[in-house]
Design a protein around this nucleic acid. Structure first.
Length: 411
RNA sequence: GCGGGUAUCGUCUAGCGGCUAAGACAUCGGUUUGUGGUACCGAGAAUCUGGGUUCGAUUCCCAGUACUCGCC
């Protein structure tokens, strides 16, 4: 399922085979929470280089419903995307929507138990219960190519004691997901004759070294659960519970602790990340898969990513790409985004300085937006609230992220 | 031409003797990490002009000006 093509230090390049096609690693997944990448058609996604998109179990379950999507012929057909799809399990929504509801109503509406998680639909308040088995069932109904186990994603800060209990619950849920998944696959041999979805576990453990390692160890033990099925072990490993409000340095510590414990012959997914320099470092640390709302969400609000046109470092590639040094990244981590210290910069296209800037957002970018439109026009579209802006910004930022992945693969 | 009404941030409105003049939208910055973000945070920005009454006027009085309604 995963073929490692090359490895330099910890950095890997490989091929991930799914039932809907082969993906080159490392790769980035645009987020199609509700079955659509906001403002992007599948053709747009192909053009910016997307190989795969991420859908969300939680949202698609509530509406339109996984059974309806199944009757429609599966999520791929429903949304007209014939490439691979990874589905998130819903675990993160317990964290993110619970926190949102708590801010708004004083109560998260989330009830966590051994059996699973009960939560309120943010739209109409109706209550739903998701168990690990239910999450798998929904993802199978959607026709997902990569299925995530249901996990608990504790917020930051969380005590060592709470985090320990939480990761142990995540382990027990993961074991139930593993068993249920393989049982359902085995029950439908004809349905999966041409390939089954891949199942990923999620390492938790917060910012604590012992707990991160313990989480990886416990999940690894599930590898050896004998179920009599054709598969043993996880098809992929994810690191979750990062970028939940913790200081930035923890990410790199967590990668240092966890990555060496992950199987070398399985894809590794860093969930929810991140900023370009974070992705660059994570790839260097040995991670293969990423997803993040940053390029699309920030794009919709006017922040656009650009490769730096000048650099103290020697260019190594055409198209204005520059090598990325640890110095550059560490400067970026410190929040020092103002000077010549990083391989990219961002602009806020809504700022007045772009009113009469008739150049492309990034002259080195090959995206549809940069080939055809000026900063002044994008500035105007955003100021006048034209929907076209949302698409042009998403196209550009997603292209930047995919170009970053291509660049990391090449160097 | 005659009579009435109204003049407060860019806009629409609040305040009606104690001003440190309030709000919304707009403007200008910023934030966003497994997306119900068209969101969120912050900043700048005004009493039509000239007189009068008063310790003190955005507020009350007079005139001017502008806008507006009605009637000729």
């Amino acid at each position: 399922m995963f073929e490692l093509l090359s490895q330099k230090n910890n950095k890997r390049v490989g091929l991930l085979k799914t039932k809907s096609g082969v993906i080159k690693t490392p790769f980035f997944m645009p987020i199609a929470t509700k079955g659509a990448v906001k403002n992007m058609t599948p053709e747009d996604l192909r053009e910016i280089g997307a190989q795969i998109v991420l859908g969300n179990t939680y949202h698609l379950w509530l509406r339109p419903g996984d059974e309806l999507i199944s009757r429609a012929g599966g999520l791929h057909k429903f949304m007209n995307w014939n490439g691979p799809i990874l589905t998130d399990s819903g675990g993160y929504q317990v964290f993110s929507l619970g926190a949102r509801a708590k801010d708004k109503y004083g109560s998260s509406g989330v009830v966590l138990s051994e059996r699973g998680v009960e939560f309120a639909d943010p739209v109409n308040g109706s209550r739903h219960f998701m168990s690990p088995e239910k999450s798998i069932e929904i993802q199978l109904n959607l026709g997902s190519d990569m299925i995530m186990v249901l996990d608990e994603c504790p917020p930051y800060p969380a005590s060592h004691e709470y985090t320990k209990k939480s990761l142990e619950l995540t382990t027990r849920w993961a074991a139930r997901c593993f068993e249920y998944f393989h049982k359902r696959i085995a029950e439908n041999p004809e349905k999966y004759a041409n390939g089954r979805p891949l199942l990923f576990c999620i390492v938790q453990g917060g910012i604590y070294e012992d707990l991160r390692k313990e989480s990886a160890r416990q999940l690894g033990a599930i590898d050896f659960v004998s179920l009599g099925g054709p598969s043993s072990g996880w098809d992929g490993w994810a690191i979750g519970g990062v970028a939940v409000g913790e200081p930035r340095k923890h990410l790199y510590e967590i990668l240092d602790w966890v990555v060496p414990l992950l199987p070398k012959d399985k894809p590794r997914y860093l969930m929810g990340l991140g900023k370009p320099e974070e992705l660059a470092k994570a790839v260097e640390a040995g991670m293969d898969m990423f997803d993040c709302v940053i390029p699309t969400r920030e794009g919709r609000h006017g922040r656009l990513f650009c490769w730096r046109k000048t650099s103290n470092f020697q260019p190594c590639l055409p198209a204005g790409r520059f090598p990325i040094s640890n110095d550059q990244m560490s400067n970026k981590e410190k929040g020092n985004t103002s000077t010549d210290d990083c391989f990219y910069e961002t602009i806020n296209i809504s700022n007045n300085q772009f009113t009469e800037d008739f150049t492309a957002v990034d002259e080195n970018c090959d995206c549809y937006t940069c080939r055809n439109y000026t900063k002044a026009y994008l500035h105007h579209l955003l100021r006048t609230n034209e929907p076209l802006f949302l698409k042009l910004a998403s196209v550009h930022n997603l292209r930047f992220y995919h170009e970053l992945m291509e660049f990391l693969e090449e160097t």
